[in-house]
Write a protein that binds this DNA or RNA. Structure first.
Length: 588
RNA sequence: GCGCCCGUAGCUCAGUUGGAUAGAGCAUCGGACUUCGAAUCCGCAGGUCGCCCGUUCGAAUCGGGCCGGGCGCGCCA
């Protein structure tokens, strides 16, 4: 059965038949290069490329393909244009049938993956006893969107929050904890005063030699498994976990304490791993450190670049932990797709870890690892986003400011919403949605400018604009129901006879049919902005439709059809937003 | 020094992996509300796609070389 929802999927077999008929079976599998077009619903760009191979004029190739396309109910018109472009106009009947099928599908035309995978997503990764700040924003937001979207596609997603909960800083943190008194310190950390706690410890470590000695001594105790030290350590860890959960709740992020698998988890695996690799001769001692030399990496002197897994003092660094983690994800968690939502500066390091894992025979097809890298958050001055004092901006402050700014917009614009509780709740949805949408809507590889005032607006290409389109539809439902007693939906969609209304309905339906393609594109490329673009274009198509076509005041039959089209649109917008981790408030 | 990433309208960003006249949104200007939400819609204007070569029917996109910005490059994570 052909896929009823997706225009390109529906067209592919037609081109297959046409290519085979016109040029022979060896051409049947050629890509028709179907693209959206300003000249038609879609265009096929394959003819020009064929011309040379066939020793024909490109235009003649286009005409031959057009002539060979079988009779079908998908295409209404095919025109050869320019050097051989095929301009494709879809049949109205096919569009309405496809949109109707989508309406009746609870998944709005997005099927589950035919080959579901187990996907590990490593994201967020804050540090224990340290404040979450803008530096964690992108990993957290992008990672969570991918986790939601891949789950929706039917994959089994395993979230791995690789929290920094081990290492030398814990010596000073534990000593500071003791100096402050457990109860006092717990209270301080419990309310999220992490940065002052950390900074105070750091200050003492740098300024007080006696304290520094105690801290170093404490590190030794921690690493040797001293029970009392571990108990103190776990106080810090538990309080931090509680704090992270609070931030995630406010950010509407799905991570829970169960998803945390911090560096400490891999602790007991590091020494055996190094011994094993050394014994097998896969790792070698170089200048007293145990190293792997993954192929293809050189230092500034063009010598092989080591991935150091055991330092000359016997200690382990992050490379060791990352290696243990990738093995755990493959061998124990049995994932086939590993995603690392980590900033672009880590590119070389991760590439080396992946290369090493390949060399060691762990990372073998079909298993693959992907670095979902992203650029920096910049201020409006185009420099790294920082406070005026030059500190990293706390995530909680960022959220507060966004919600506050959103509340100004809400109070100004949302006249339908008056009670304070709803205003607060709505401002939260809009403010958090604005931050996330702004982050997700531009290509993640690039840096982007964080401009709160611009982001929280409902005008322009913002999250608020999409939420607003959705809320307007809900408003139509409320008003229609109030006025007419009941909402009567049509079973099937159809187009008006009036030409301008017809055009707006048709454009909206055609837009909606691209939902599947957008979701699958994100699944494949791990670029959430492709879905954002789709949602903005859909919201825009709805606004044009809304302007052009009365719903409540249309004749009963037309009204029923338009209500159904509204329902489909609202469903797609709300579903799309949910895949990004953004709410769709019913009124605003 | 070597390597990676980025450079598109005044500003913020797209550009479906090589396709037609490079598109949106802000901002500016001009239209459209006694009818479902004007937070919207319709339109005008705005460009040497950092620069120069090359590849080919065709380049913002691919290759090479420059310029500018950012980030990495053996015992911090």
């Amino acid at each position: 059965m052909t896929n009823l929802h997706d225009p390109r999927e529906a067209l592919r077999p037609l081109f297959r038949t046409a290519l085979q008929a016109a040029f022979g079976p060896e051409f049947a599998d050629e890509d028709p290069i179907l693209r959206s077009s300003t000249h038609a619903d879609l265009q096929a760009n394959l003819a020009m490329g064929f011309a040379r191979r066939l020793k024909m004029q490109p235009r003649a190739v286009g005409e031959a393909i057009a002539a060979a396309l079988p009779r079908n109910e998908v295409l209404a018109r095919v025109e050869v244009a320019g050097p051989g472009f095929l301009n494709l106009t879809l049949a109205d009947g096919w569009i309405t049938a496809a949109a109707t099928a989508m309406l009746q599908d609870p998944r709005f035309g997005v099927p589950c993956a035919t080959r579901p995978e187990r996907v590990v997503i490593d994201y967020s990764a804050p540090n224990v006893a340290k404040e979450m700040h803008v530096g964690h924003l992108r990993s957290t937001v992008i990672g969570d969107a991918l986790a939601r979207l891949l789950s929706f596609r039917g994959h089994e997603v395993i979230r791995q929050n690789h929290v920094g909960d081990w290492g030398t800083p814990f010596g000073m943190l534990i000593e500071h904890l003791l100096d402050r008194g457990e109860a006092e310190a717990s209270a301080e950390l419990g309310v999220g005063e992490l940065s002052s706690f950390y900074k105070a410890a750091r200050r003492k470590f740098d300024g007080d030699p006696g304290f520094a000695d105690r801290a170093r001594n404490r590190v030794v105790k921690l690493q040797s498994g001293d029970p009392e030290t571990l108990r103190l350590w776990s106080i810090l860890v538990q309080l931090s976990h509680r704090y992270f959960s609070e931030v995630y709740r406010r950010l509407d992020v799905t991570l829970t304490p169960d998803d945390i698998k911090g560096e400490s988890f891999y602790n007991s695996l590091l020494a055996p791993l190094c011994d094993e690799l050394e014994k097998q001769g896969k790792a070698t001692i170089n200048q007293d450190a145990l190293c792997l030399f993954p192929p293809g990496f050189v230092n500034r002197d063009k010598e092989p670049l080591p991935l150091m897994i055991r330092k000359k003092d016997g200690g382990f660094g992050y490379a060791t932990t990352d290696l243990a983690a990738i093995r755990h994800r493959i061998e124990d968690l049995k994932a086939t797709r590993l995603l690392y939502v980590v900033g672009a500066p880590q590119e070389q390091h991760l590439a080396m870890v992946f290369a090493a894992a390949r060399e060691l025979g762990w990372l073998v097809p079909p298993i693959r690892a992907e670095h979902v890298k992203f650029g920096s958050v910049l201020g409006t001055d185009k420099r790294m986003f920082k406070t005026r004092q030059g500190d990293a901006v706390r995530l909680v402050d960022l959220i507060d400011e966004a919600v506050e700014a959103a509340q100004r917009e809400v109070r100004e614009n949302c006249k339908e919403v008056d009670d304070e509780e709803t205003i607060r709740e709505l401002s939260r949805s809009v403010g958090v949605g604005a931050i996330k949408f702004a982050d997700l809507s531009c290509d993640r590889i690039k840096d982007y400018v964080f401009d709160l005032d611009r982001m929280v607006r409902f005008e322009g290409r913002t999250g608020g604009y999409v939420q607003y389109a959705h809320a307007r539809i809900q408003s139509i439902f409320r008003k229609t129901e109030k006025e007419l007693g009941a909402l009567v939906f049509a079973q099937g969609l159809s187009l008006s006879s009036d030409s301008s209304e017809r055009q707006a309905e048709r454009a909206l339906m055609l837009r909606l049919l691209g939902f599947r393609e957008a979701v699958e594109a994100v699944e494949n490329t791990l670029q959430p902005h492709l879905l954002c673009t789709f949602l903005l274009d859909t919201a825009e198509a709805f606004s044009t439709f809304y302007q052009q076509c009365p719903v409540k005041n249309a004749a009963p039959e037309r009204r029923a059809v338009r209500l159904s089209l509204c329902k489909l649109t609202a469903g797609v917008l709300a579903t799309g937003l949910s895949l990004l981790g953004i709410q769709a408030p019913p009124r605003m």
